[in-house]
Simulated assay, not measured.
Amino acid sequence: MDDTRSPAGETSNDVLFQLEAMHSTDALNYRIIAQSESEVRDIQNAPAISMSSFITESDQTKLLRTVSIYSQRGETSDQVRLLYMNDAAFSVWKGMGKEPTVIGSQHRPPSTALLAFGIPFSE
């Protein structure tokens, strides 16, 4: 088996990912929101429940065509649930008075995350 590591110890995949990151023009469209165990216990922190009510009651139903939120199980009590919110969803969430714990951002949600509310992402 051939070793594809460069003299610096990087594999060809490492170099590819570095080059892709340097030259990527893709925006980081999704903010990653961590919700703690206590936040998850409050049903109002479930976007599918609270956000849909907020959007409907505030007569902003046109937002339903732009909001995209994915959810994934976290691994610690500080990050029991991870939400991946696009800009529209994040703006609505903040408009609802939520104070989300943003832990990062990325171009799109991971393939293991499930659509929790809104529309699927598109390229």
Rank of each mutant, 00 (worst) to 15 (best):
T25P: 01
P7L: 12
E20W: 06
Y84K: 05
D87S: 15
G74M: 03
S71L: 06
F90G: 00
K62T: 04
L82G: 07
G95E: 10
A8D: 12
N45I: 09
T101D: 05
I32M: 12
S12I: 11
P109V: 07
S105Y: 02
S36Y: 14
A27E: 14
S105G: 05
A48L: 08
N86Q: 05
S24R: 07
Y70K: 07
S53E: 06
A27N: 11
G95T: 08
L64H: 07
G95W: 06
F17E: 14
W93I: 01
F17W: 08
M51R: 07
V80C: 04
G74F: 02
P7H: 01
G104V: 02
D59G: 09
A88R: 03
L64E: 02
K98H: 14
F90H: 15
Q79A: 10
K94G: 02
D42K: 04
G9Y: 11
N45H: 14
S91W: 00
M85C: 14
A34P: 15
S111F: 13
M96C: 06
E75I: 05
Q18S: 08
I33F: 13
L83W: 15
K98I: 10
A27T: 09
D14T: 01
Q72E: 15
T25N: 12
S12L: 15
Q44I: 10
D59F: 13
P47G: 04
V15G: 00
S12E: 12
P109R: 06
V80E: 11
A88H: 09
M96V: 03
L64D: 01
T76R: 00
T56E: 09
V40K: 11
T56A: 10
